[in-house]
Design a protein around this nucleic acid. Structure first.
Length: 214
DNA sequence: AATATTCCCAACCGCCCGTGA
DNA sequence: GTCACGGGCGGTTGGGAATAT
């Protein structure tokens, strides 16, 4: 049946939020205890923003007691465990993690080296590697983290139907990216899971279009 | 030093669901 | 029962920084 858009995208501001806008939104929501109707909030608060954008900003960034980044190993393990049980229900997973949002969990799961790639070629990557902390004094595990993750998921669920097959070289990574489009992982191919699952299953990200913009 | 590549994460998009008229 | 609406959610995109070559 189709739906009318929640706001006029041509007349509202989009993109990054300014500190002033954050302050207005924060004070408005806190002053009234809750936001009430998100779609009318921008008008009431004097913000030239889409209501859904306001809601997202509040829930994912401005909400008190939120923590950003710095996922602990325990949190990472819990995410992996819950993902194995329930799949990409990020909001459900986030509900089990205090001070985390679904968006955070999603970004963590689909964006951390520990869940994406089999190799840690850079210092930055190693330092951020949740399953292989940079502070560890022990030698690296025999099996790479991505394999451990996949084995874990294999044991926890029957998601995996395809054998693990990939190389960890940058070359194969580029090749994979260039051939990975939404249509390539769509319904036409049962062996091409959707990106989030594909990343966890293969330990590598699917394509990110920005890499093609240059 | 310059350029290319990779990554993080905030923000957006669009669909689904629950609810009330 | 149907429809419109708002909220919620998963998936995707893009900017900018860090790192590698």
């Amino acid at each position: 049946m189709g739906r009318s858009p929640c706001c006029d995208k041509g007349s509202v501001k989009r993109g990054p939020w300014s500190p002033e806008e954050d302050a207005v939104l924060r004070s408005f929501v806190q002053r009234f205890s809750n936001a009430g109707n998100w779609l009318t909030l921008p008008h009431k608060a004097g913000l030239n923003r889409c209501g859904k954008s306001c809601r997202l900003r509040w829930l994912n960034y401005l909400r008190p007691s939120l923590r950003h980044g710095g996922f602990t190993k325990e949190e990472d393990n819990l995410i992996l465990s819950l993902y194995g049980e329930i799949g990409s229900k990020w909001s459900v997973i986030a509900a089990r993690l205090p001070s985390r949002t679904g968006n955070d969990v999603k970004n963590q799961s689909t964006g951390t080296p520990s869940s994406r790639r089999g190799t840690c070629s850079s210092q930055r990557e190693q330092q951020r590697h949740l399953l292989l902390p940079a502070t560890t004094a022990s030698p690296p595990p025999t099996a790479p983290p991505w394999l451990m993750v996949n084995l874990f998921l294999l044991l926890r669920s029957s998601i995996l139907t395809q054998p693990l097959q990939r190389s960890t070289t940058a070359e194969s990574s580029r090749t994979s990216r260039s051939s990975c489009t939404p249509s390539s992982w769509g319904s036409s191919s049962s062996s091409s899971p959707r990106p989030a699952l594909a990343r966890l299953q293969t330990g590598r990200p699917c394509c990110r279009n920005r890499h093609h913009r240059q």
